[in-house]
């Protein structure tokens, strides 16, 4: 008999709620990578990503008893993580928006548009460009272009109407296209 991931999650959560604390570690094992990567892409640095990841799991720990099994746990957790990340970024002290991609890149590497970039440098450029997006655009780009979630899945996770998801993605991609165009040749290397 094959147990689906969703069934496994439900079973794990029930174990945890009946007193098996180790079951929470199983949830951490399954979802820490998603949450950490989301946190990193939203904040752009290790320190904030580490802090945000821990806060999300602490929040999950508090809220787990309220999971009603009405949707897949993964969708519920992603929604919780996305909403928590947005609230976290709203706080004045956590603002990480960068107004100009060049500000984020040039001081360190002295990289100029058109210069052939190494893969690691490209990743830094792309991360900096993502940080120039609004929080909502950032989330859609991360979920769709980085994680590969469909429009419908993103609707479930974010709670936004499909038209909003599409338009945010379109605006985000247009902005990224302009920001990254001078550096795009690095990919062809």
């Amino acid at each position: 008999m094959v147990i689906s991931k969703a069934d496994l999650d439900i079973s794990t959560i029930r174990s945890y709620l009946t007193g098996d604390k180790r079951a929470f570690d199983d949830l951490v094992e399954r979802y820490e990578k998603f949450v950490y990567n989301l946190a990193y892409r939203m904040t752009g640095n290790n320190t904030d990503a580490a802090g945000l990841t821990q806060e999300i799991f602490i929040h999950l720990h508090k809220k787990l008893a309220s999971f009603r099994e009405e949707s897949a746990f993964s969708t519920w957790l992603y929604r919780l993580a996305v909403n928590y990340s947005k609230d976290w970024l709203k706080k004045e002290s956590h603002r990480v928006e960068i107004t100009d991609i060049d500000e984020a890149i040039l001081p360190d590497g002295g990289m100029l548009p058109g210069q052939v970039c190494e893969q690691k440098e490209i990743q830094g450029l792309v991360q900096a460009a993502i940080l120039t997006l609004s929080k909502d655009q950032r989330i859609i780009v991360i979920l769709h272009d980085l994680y590969g979630y469909s429009y419908d899945e993103i609707v479930d996770i974010t709670g936004s109407p499909i038209g909003t998801v599409k338009s945010r993605l379109a605006r985000a991609r247009l902005k990224l296209a302009e920001k990254l165009a001078p550096y795009g040749n690095g990919l062809e290397k």
């Binding site: 580490a50 450029l125 460009a129 795009g184």
Partner: peptide, 21 residues
């Protein structure tokens, strides 16, 4: 340009969770 940007985002890949976290 847009196709290139999407390709660049997809190239980011997945980060490992730091051991202490």
């Amino acid at each position: 340009k847009m196709k290139s940007a999407v390709k660049m985002v997809r190239s980011l890949g997945e980060l490992e969770v730091p051991a202490d976290v």
